[in-house]
Design a binder for these strands. Sequence first.
DNA 1: TTTAGCACTCAACGGGCAAGAGTGCTAAAC
DNA 2: GTTTAGCACTCTTGCCCGTTGAGTGCTAAA
Lengths: 359, 359
Amino acid sequence: MDEMFLSNRKQQVLKAIIDAHIAYGEPVGSKFLAQSQQLRCSSATIRNEMAELEALGYLEQPHTSAGRVPSELGYRFYVDALLSRYEMAAQEVAQINAALLRKLNELDQMLAEASRLASHLTNYPAIAAKTKPETAFISRFDGVYVDAYQFVLVMLFTGGTVKTRTLHLSRPLSPATLTRLLAALNDLFTHKSVHLITLPLILELESRAGEAAPLVNPLVKLIYETMKGLDEGDLRVEGVNRLLQYPEYNDTAELRSMLSLLEEKEDLLNLLSGEPPSDDIHVLIGSENTVKVMNNSALVYKTVRRGDHVIGAIGIIGPRRMDYAKVIGTVNHLAQDIDRLLGGDEPNRRQERTTDQDD
Amino acid sequence: MDEMFLSNRKQQVLKAIIDAHIAYGEPVGSKFLAQSQQLRCSSATIRNEMAELEALGYLEQPHTSAGRVPSELGYRFYVDALLSRYEMAAQEVAQINAALLRKLNELDQMLAEASRLASHLTNYPAIAAKTKPETAFISRFDGVYVDAYQFVLVMLFTGGTVKTRTLHLSRPLSPATLTRLLAALNDLFTHKSVHLITLPLILELESRAGEAAPLVNPLVKLIYETMKGLDEGDLRVEGVNRLLQYPEYNDTAELRSMLSLLEEKEDLLNLLSGEPPSDDIHVLIGSENTVKVMNNSALVYKTVRRGDHVIGAIGIIGPRRMDYAKVIGTVNHLAQDIDRLLGGDEPNRRQERTTDQDD
DNA sequence: TTTAGCACTCAACGGGCAAGAGTGCTAAAC
DNA sequence: GTTTAGCACTCTTGCCCGTTGAGTGCTAAA
């Protein structure tokens, strides 16, 4: 228990070390701490505490004649217990609100704006993920007749997403035939998962399509691909160049693996979507990350939801010694703001609002 | 004229030097060239030629005891006169076709795939830009009635783009009222640029909207923002991490400014959209670039068109000593392939095809 | 006009040395 | 018992400096 619970002064020393290391990025020594006035004791005392903190695993020493550096455990304890709550400046809050409000109409743009803001405010790269929605069905087909040679197919998905596709035809189509085709589509293809679109169904559609029968094949293919395309998540990365400020990424290998990670997108998207939906903010430090490449980095993220279901996440990625207080505060605020602005889907809305087609 | 026109052997020497430098990235010396068997003369002769080429401005010498490096003028001459045409391997061609065909339905995805391919094939970062379309007007409004509290507004733009927005209402709307509203919209708001949407027009719409009058204000705002949103171009960058292979980007400052450039997107988008639409492939070397940050880099790009008008561009960005033959070949091929796959807008199409909503 | 030979220049490499930062330990002080 | 001053020790960092080697320009001969 002595080992589990750190004495008050040990905590102070640990916090002071981590604060200093976050600020300056270099190993911090006892003398520096003694001078910084935060602790009311001599460097020798601090040295003793540091030695013990190292024995307990909270600190590490790059080499004999260097100061101490927080270990992963040290950061973990810092984040869980030592972190002082970061209060955003009023100006920052205003900036967030103004910027997000402007983008309210398009989820994509909103996430993009959020990641831009997050990166800008924290000075680390930011990511914004749009998770793959739970398998959506088409709830309704509709069409807009443009002229005899083209029409717009409108597909309404459960969950409110709307997708459109313009079809260019090789032979003329009458409005009546289009209506008939749409009726058949609505009969046969709504509320079905991709796997339930079987050949008999397609043949049935063909027989009902009348003169539009030759259109059925490309149409089905189109619907299939649209449904499949909907399942893809997307990930935006903003501010990678900010990584270069931090000496930990001056190492080419480190930087390179980080850049690869941020480009792959797959891994990150899985990581972000994989977590159980929780209101908490997630802080993954170093090897806590399942993604191997992030052993020397940290990831802070929070899911974003529309009404009940998770539609994405925004996060910050950076060195292990990231400014957790500021980052956690910012990500938290941003995610909550987006949640709020997207509004719940509760039945009684007080105001008109619009949503994009979730493309 | 002696100065303008290089002797045959000088050209050979220049080409050999640039080829070698592109391949190995280091200054190339006379001895190396003499051994490489390409030139049938001694190192001393090559030294003399090199000295003259340097005097003419085609070569540079980092320092006295180093070999020569091509100057910007050198690269320019190389690209314009010396470059041997690069023939893509059949396998590469097949890869491009297969990959692009799979993405045929969505312009965005297609450009994304193209840049992925370009980056992969050339081993440099690739960019794919979707240029802002020339000011588009809405040619038609339509709507899909979902239920009393929501409908989908479908906007058809000249040029074939389709945008949809879902409106959530605070009070019920009847299908008849929606029809009326849409008719009024089609009367008043089609074929108008953003600037022509004036207050009288809005008031007129309001008076015609009947019970949907309270809806008019948010609706107009929505339309306005959609039209404005359409004007935004987009830029995708793929494979930045490949930059790190090249020693010229080991310098942090260089890498950093490059990353910033690739993130800003604005500058690049302007550069790509700014050029007069031409079928040629553009090769910008070093300071030929208007973007200052690219002084040590090169950009190869080509516009992509659907039918007659330019809808985007794809390009490769890399060090000045980039493998121009391969890059030019690849970009050229890709751009042409996309042009072809998107198909002309000639009236007699032989096949059904679909286009996305150009979001 | 080409080539061999040679002296010269200069970046790159590596060893050696001094400086400095930080530690652990011991012994004295509180 | 805890804190602190003092000191010896370690190890990195930076610097100086000589050596090495690649590449050149020039000269003179072929």
